[in-house]
């Protein structure tokens, strides 16, 4: 469990890559119950004008917080987590999409022992989430 007194604003607390392939999307569809076919069928994705099959935004949001949970060692310390979906993640039929998450300390409240961690989630050189902020109890 990290100590708030040891943290400084700007500290990178975690950085991790995630490899998404079509199997990942099917697994997330099953686990979440979101079976929108734009997340697994090329013809339907193309039919509604998308650049390809997209990862569920909620999958990107879900994996982006994993480095923070691992750092805390307890998912129960997450108080609040919000994101804005800014760009889609296109997942090819063959191969994979690599998503990079960097988590940084953005705000510290020593009295309440709370910290805000900001996440930068990027794919193909672009941020795919905006205003991605997590409040944690330390």
């Amino acid at each position: 469990m990290p100590e708030i007194s040891e943290l400084t604003i700007g500290d990178v607390i975690a950085e991790k890559n995630f490899n998404l392939d079509r199997d990942s999307l099917v697994r997330y569809a099953g686990a979440s119950g979101d079976f929108n076919p734009i997340h697994y069928r090329d013809d339907i994705a193309a039919g509604v004008g998308l650049p390809g099959v997209l990862a569920h935004g909620m999958l990107t949001m879900g994996l982006s917080i994993d480095p923070v949970v691992s750092w805390l060692g307890d998912a129960g310390k997450i108080l609040e987590y919000g994101v804005r979906f800014t760009k889609p993640v296109v997942v090819p039929a063959k191969g994979r999409a690599v998503i990079t998450v960097i988590a940084k300390v953005a705000e510290l409240d020593s009295e309440a022992k709370k910290a805000r961690i900001d996440l930068q989630t990027s794919f193909d050189g672009n941020n795919v989430l905006g205003k991605s902020q997590v409040w944690v109890q330390l």
Partner: peptide, 23 residues
């Protein structure tokens, strides 16, 4: 199932670890 689908670590779904954290 949901944790694995969102790439969570195996430690985060370890029952003994959860109980050790007071859950």
């Amino acid at each position: 199932e949901f944790a694995r689908a969102t790439f969570a670590s195996e430690e985060s779904i370890d029952l003994a670890a959860a109980k050790a954290s007071g859950h």
